[in-house]
Amino acid sequence: MLRLVAARIALGLVSLLLVSLAIFAITSLLPGDAAQEQLGQAATRETVEALRRNLGLDQPGHVRYLRWIGGLLQGDFGRSLVNDMPVAQLIGSRLPNSLMLAAATAAVSVPLALAIGTTAAMWRGTAYDRAVSMLTLSVVSVPEFLVATAAVIVFAVQLRWVSALSAAADITSVGQFFRVFALPVFSLCCVIIAQMVRMTRAALIDQLRAPYVEMAVLKGVGPWRVVLTHALPNAIGPIANAVALSLSYLLGGVIIVETIFNYPGVAKLMVDGVAQRDLPVVQACAMLFCAAYLVLVTTADVVAILANPRLRHG
């Protein structure tokens, strides 16, 4: 089992290395560069060249890549090309905000999704199950900017329950916390709950059709016990994967939500970085998102391995 887990983690690290190559290659393809962007249209060719040399942009690609990845390994994310601050510091100031938003959303969405998915699987074919299916399908098909904008219009503008903008800095009380986070968390939950509900339901129904579930019923086991102690342990693998995929969205894919609510998170930092051709910032953010994604997916795989006695004792 340890070998399996170690192999899974090693595979994750190799993926991360490949991802770093891809990120570097793609960001290098972005048209224009920071020197051009900073000096504007009026700059002469010589001043642009001088700034390029100054920023190290005149070096060949593989040298820049090696220098960058070497820096990453030592914890040096480089300096922003735009305002010359260390990238680590830029991200460091935004990351807690993003993590807080992600944690709040995860804390609401995961238990809710598992409960809805489990009950829908238990009462499959009933009106409740059909309603859940319809609702999740329609919510997942509505783009999140629409959900977010609609939420702002209804709850902030019309009802005036919460403020339209979220700045994590103004939190002083629990009530404040709810007021700041309610809308972004609600919008994000709409996007990720549906996927988790559908996967939980499908994985459980798959197990509920298994002969051992019929056997449990014939042993006189009650419906809740059948689901919770017999079917659920066997469905953990696919459910953990669905949860990991959905949560990974919270770190990288929240750009729209952060933008709409003007929320100072990492995603917004990355968007600004792209606009200003600030490659070190973009690259570091991309690496951060990919690493988070790989950590989540690898964790899900490890959980699936641990939950399966065949692999655990294999």
Binding site: A210, P211, Y212, E214, M215, A216, V217, L218, K219, G220, V221, G222, T229, H230, P233, N234, A307, N308, P309, R310
Partner: peptide, 25 residues
């Protein structure tokens, strides 16, 4: 009452034990 009846008063041995045993317990 059926739940109390099954297993307590009548029990069942299924055709394929390898499918009828829960693999994770």
């Amino acid at each position: 009452a059926l739940r109390d009846f099954r297993g307590r008063r009548v029990s069942y041995v299924a055709q394929s034990a390898s499918a009828a045993f829960n693999p994770s317990r």
